[in-house]
Amino acid sequence: MPDEHGMSMIPGESLLDPELQQSVILTKVQWVKDWGRRHALWPMAFGLACCAMEMMATAATKYDLDRFGAGVFRASPRQSDLMIVAGTLSHKMAPRLRRLWEQMPDPKYVIAMGACVIGGGPYSKFGYHVVQGVDLVVPVDVYLPGCPPRPEALIDAIRKLQFRIQERSGETLPDMPQGLPQDPTDEDGEETSAA
């Protein structure tokens, strides 16, 4: 169980000298690694079409993606660990996307942003040039529907990815949703009735 600082309490910890407890933090190496990873996701700028506008808006001042540690957009795959594929992926681009994904160091994550990268979107049926889903080319961690998704939705997708990263080390986070996410307020901040 994490305490209120999110730090893991090891069984048997209470046997330690109380003075020692105040100066020493006991935790798991995997937990610290994942903690670092989830707070320093460096996205690779992969804007392919209109969805990229929302991605840029998310990174800009109003929505400030830096609050979640994911605002350092890199122009090189070698410096990034998160690929936000935002836009329409054409068949001509697909091999390049695959190659750039392969150049990213492990561990690496992919967010499929928008209807186009999830399944072809408006071009799915007759767009001969559009790949019908980026998951045909690279594995996807989080699917983010919308045409385009709002910046809030992209922030939510990044939070989901952060939960996912931390989940791997077997930890639950204090603010991690249990089961289906429950939002008691509507868009205007008013309480919505349960009925």
Partner: peptide, 24 residues
């Protein structure tokens, strides 16, 4: 040349499968 009216969707392109309009 894909804007020809009798152009057929290929089954896949460079390993990426393509579902033709009838299949959707």
């Amino acid at each position: 040349h894909p804007l020809r009216k009798d152009w057929e969707f290929p089954a896949s392109y460079h390993g990426v499968p393509i579902i033709p309009p009838e299949g959707l």
